[in-house]
Design a protein around this nucleic acid. Structure first.
Length: 298
DNA sequence: AATGCGGGCAACCGCTTTCAA
DNA sequence: CTTGAAAGCGGTTGCCCGCAT
């Protein structure tokens, strides 16, 4: 690809991963956990760059990866989030359980971007999101990997999404509560089944979700400014967290997660009061789409 | 049946950001 | 405060596959 290697590549494998390499990497990470990517190949006995291992794990081997077609809901969400966030693929992916930034980026570049272009040049275009071309290729499995060996082949239970922008979470810690199970119909929220079954996991990831909520809200507030450079005022947030009012939402799981959103100044100062951004509803596609396109509110 | 072409996707790259010493 | 390592990110590339000719 014409560029100098990012690290020493002597004797390292490149290109598509083999089933054996996948197995080794998966086994190693299962045993030792993620992280320390640079040392990982040596320790695991893989002839790969650490970066390559990280990418392979995050984009393909993770057990919480959702394979298969992008659903209509997901597609709409991607489009709206892209309108809002631009090419912040990792942020967009953070709102789509089981989807990776690479997958969304590819999907945009190959499908949605073109469609958007076509639509722009021909506003009367009647192509629907379910047009034939879109489904020309269904679930893709890498040819190098024996599907029977793939973790996804046997792992039908999709776990909670972990946005890769995990660093953000270290600065935002919001008290969380799992959604009341009895209030949620699992059949209608299959994408979020993990949230209904794995509270511990959800709590581990909740701060990230909350942080994304901040970004979305701030984006709305700043009307397109580069809100991702926004630095959260720690003191303000701390005072908000101390405020009884700001914690009401976390204390009151009975609040309707899709309650119409009224965006006022107080809410921007204390986004945790917004029911749409409550963790109980933060991953709900409907509520988010609702947030992004207020003129479509019923 | 053979070949060319384009689409789709996995993987790679360099830059940026974050964190710890 | 500085600096280097590690990790994250988005852009780009190259290969494979399916379709058209």
């Amino acid at each position: 690809m014409g560029r100098s290697p990012c690290c020493s590549k002597e004797g390292l494998n490149r290109g598509a991963w083999t089933a054996l390499e996948d197995k080794i990497l998966t086994a190693y990470i299962k045993a030792h956990g993620e992280g320390k990517w640079r040392n990982l190949p040596k320790r695991a006995g893989l002839k790969r760059c650490g970066k390559s291992c990280r990418l392979r794990w995050l984009n393909y081997l993770r057990p919480d990866i959702k394979r298969g077609n992008i659903s209509h809901d997901e597609e709409e969400l991607i489009i709206r989030l892209h309108n809002l966030l631009g090419n912040r693929w990792s942020l967009i992916a953070g709102r789509l359980p089981g989807r990776t930034d690479n997958e969304i980026k590819n999907y945009w570049n190959t499908t949605l971007g073109k469609r958007a272009k076509a639509k722009a040049s021909s506003p009367t275009s009647t192509e629907t999101p379910h047009s034939k071309s879109r489904h020309k290729k269904l679930t893709t499995q890498p040819h190098v990997t024996d599907p029977s060996n793939s973790p996804q082949a046997t792992e039908t239970k999709i776990q909670v999404i972990r946005t890769k922008a995990t660093r953000c979470s270290s600065k935002v810690l919001v008290p969380l509560q799992p959604p009341p199970i009895q209030d949620i119909d699992p059949s209608e929220h299959q994408d979020f089944q993990p949230y209904l079954t794995n509270h511990e996991e959800m709590n581990n990831n909740a701060s990230v979700q909350s942080h994304h909520g901040t970004e979305v809200l701030d984006a709305l507030y700043s009307h397109g400014q580069d809100f991702l450079n926004f630095e959260i005022n720690d003191q303000l947030r701390a005072s908000n967290e101390d405020s009884e009012e700001s914690n009401d939402i976390n204390k009151n799981p009975s609040l309707d997660p899709v309650q119409p959103l009224s965006i006022d100044e107080a809410m921007f100062k204390d986004w945790t009061t917004n029911p749409c951004l409550d963790d109980n509803a933060a991953m709900d596609l409907d509520s988010l789409a609702f947030l992004l396109e207020p003129d479509e509110w019923p």
